Amino acid sequence: MNNNAQNATLVVVDMQAKLAPAMSEYTHLRAQVQLLLSASHCLDIHCVVTEQYPEGLGPTDAQLKIGNANYITKTTFSAAQHKDFEQALGSHQHIYLCGMESHVCVYFTAMDLLAKGYTVSVIADAVCSRKQENKQWALLQLRQAGVQVCSAETAIFGWMHSCEHPQFKEVLALIK
């Protein structure tokens, strides 16, 4: 897995509080996404946040501390079909996806990015669906299609490459 932090973008997909009650593991998901956001901030990882139809589904969960990110408001299930999405990614070629739902917006975004030539990693412990089996099917299908599936810690440690990274202790404190 190529984890060059300078080439990475973390995409937080549709973490909207109005959707939370329907999700099977939202509390865990929010904690994992917050860990990724905090680590990406420490490591200066580029971040994009998507919101699916916020007029109906509301804004991104206010409990998440997003920091500096590009926001994309969308109505398509795949963020990659939004006209401004690729511009928001900048020149970064390795896209890390987290958020919800695994089998809809995360899935279609990952598949479209893969088709466009990006390296795509879906962070398995930082995605969820209303039903656990939908998440499992989505991760299986994504893996079979060539999307990398990893954990939040794998992504974070990969961004640093080594315990000699200048922010290693700061990021390690977030994980412990």
Rank of each mutant, 00 (worst) to 15 (best):
T60V: 10
G67I: 08
C98D: 03
A126H: 03
T27N: 11
A17P: 01
E170P: 00
Y53K: 11
T109Q: 04
F85I: 11
H92Q: 09
L172K: 08
P21F: 13
L142D: 05
A31M: 10
K18W: 06
G99K: 10
H82C: 09
A115W: 04
L57F: 08
H161L: 02
A79E: 01
Y53T: 13
N68D: 09
T73C: 04
T154L: 01
Y96F: 13
F77N: 07
S38T: 14
Y53R: 13
A20P: 08
H46Q: 12
I123C: 02
V33A: 05
S40R: 03
T50M: 05
C47M: 11
I45Q: 02
L36C: 14
L37T: 13
G146S: 09
Q34S: 13
S102K: 08
G56A: 08
H103G: 13
N70C: 09
K135H: 04
F85Q: 04
K169E: 06
A155S: 06
L174T: 12
F108Q: 15
P166R: 03
C163S: 09
H161M: 05
P54G: 05
G117R: 02
Q16I: 13
T119F: 01
L140D: 05
R30D: 03
K135I: 07
V147W: 03
A88I: 12
G117H: 03
E25K: 14
K169I: 08
